[in-house]
Amino acid sequence: MKIHEVSKRTGMKKRTIYFYIKEELLAPPVNEENGYYDFQEEDIRRIMLISEFRNAGFPISMIRSIIKEPATASYYLSSYVSAMKKQKAHLEKTIESIGYVIEKLPLHISLDSLYATMLNARIPAAINKEELHGGDKDSMVLNRYLWRPFIPNEIKSDYQEFLWSKINRLVAESNNEDYETLSRYLNSLCPQKIEELYKRSGIHLAFVVSLDEKGCRDYVDTLKKYIDENLKNERLVRQWKQNYKSFYLPSMRIYDSSMEQDIIAQISPFFAKYRENIHKICRYLYADLLGKNEELLERMNRILGDCMDLTCCHHAVLEAFGGLLLEM
């Protein structure tokens, strides 16, 4: 079927159909004999589907993602409706504020009177893209600390973009107490401290991912030395106890058991390696402490008390406490 027939049947202009092809929404086969597109019935249905999405106002990038991965349709539709509701609420507030300005403006308007009236109207700030599609500010700060270090600087595929958006939504809508606790902690920090924490997390990730079998065992020996030194440092022990339940413990539990880690593993080639190595390191370290360094383990229990739970998170508390010296 030639393009003029497709145009006639769908009501689409030829340039619109070519635009869909250029944007990878449509991929009709090419006739090898003449080099022209040879449209099929499937392409007609695809064009009509795209038309419905466009009529509803869906952006091209979102339509492309749905077409490439139909399983994402439910998520994107829900996300789009949620964004529209936010826009609606924002527009209603803006209309109300501008109505106030119209009502309160004096008969003789000057720039000063206009400025004063608009200031009193409290016109809401524009909604940015991340707030519209990616959840609230708290969830974005949380995700940046927890998951962003695992992701390449640029998310290259639409499906990866979808997965990252899904993580933001899941965290924003989650009732997980660990997320709430960690969010409160992060929001208590100044922006510079959060940035420092984020960078440190990225450095630690890269280090753990880089370790081979020998490197993991060498790191275990290093951690034993750090644990011994940290237990002698009153300031570090106090820091650990102050932040254990609000920061260290919820972070460890989220990394160990949340559904988001399975999604991150699909985006990042580094996460699976990180998880494998960190579990291995903690297992080796725990076995070593039980077999050869029981005295060190007893000291940890005595000094840290209820701020050390070896039964959860694959003994991750050992690496977390030992790594305190690395954070200085």
Rank of each mutant, 00 (worst) to 15 (best):
Y80I: 05
S97C: 11
I102N: 03
K68Q: 06
Y76S: 06
F53V: 10
S78Y: 08
Y76N: 10
A73H: 13
S97F: 04
Y100F: 09
I60D: 06
K68S: 03
K86C: 10
Y100D: 02
L105F: 00
S74K: 14
P59L: 09
A56R: 11
I98E: 01
T72N: 09
V81L: 11
M84Q: 14
P70E: 03
V101E: 00
A73M: 15
S61F: 12
Y80A: 05
I102C: 02
S74F: 10
I63W: 08
E69N: 13
I95L: 13
S79C: 09
L91P: 02
N55S: 07
P59K: 08
A73P: 04
S79R: 11
R64E: 08
L77I: 15
A89M: 14
I63S: 10
K85R: 15
K93Y: 02
A89I: 13
Y76I: 11
I98W: 05
E103Y: 02
S61A: 14
T72M: 07
I66M: 09
L91K: 12
S61I: 12
I98C: 01
P70S: 06
S79Q: 10
R64V: 02
S82Y: 01
I63E: 06
Y75D: 12
G57P: 07
E69Q: 09
Q87K: 15
A89T: 15
G99P: 01
H90K: 11
E69C: 08
A83E: 01
N55G: 00
S82G: 00
T72C: 09
H90G: 05
F53W: 14
L105N: 04
L91R: 13
R64L: 03
R64C: 05
T94S: 07
S97T: 05
A56I: 05
L105P: 05
S74H: 13
I63K: 11
N55P: 01
I67Q: 00
S61V: 13
A71Q: 13
F58A: 04
Y80K: 11
Y75Q: 08
R54C: 08
A83K: 04
S97H: 06
A56M: 14
G99R: 07
S65Y: 03
K68G: 03
I66D: 01
K88H: 13
K68V: 00
M62D: 14
T94V: 04
I98F: 10
I60P: 05
P70V: 07
A89Q: 15
P106Q: 03
L77C: 11
A56G: 01
S78A: 13
Y75G: 10
I60A: 06
Y76K: 11
K104H: 14
E92H: 04
K85Y: 10
S78W: 04
K86R: 15
I95Q: 10
K93P: 00
V81N: 08
L91H: 07
V81Y: 12
K104T: 06
I95M: 12
P106C: 04
L77D: 04
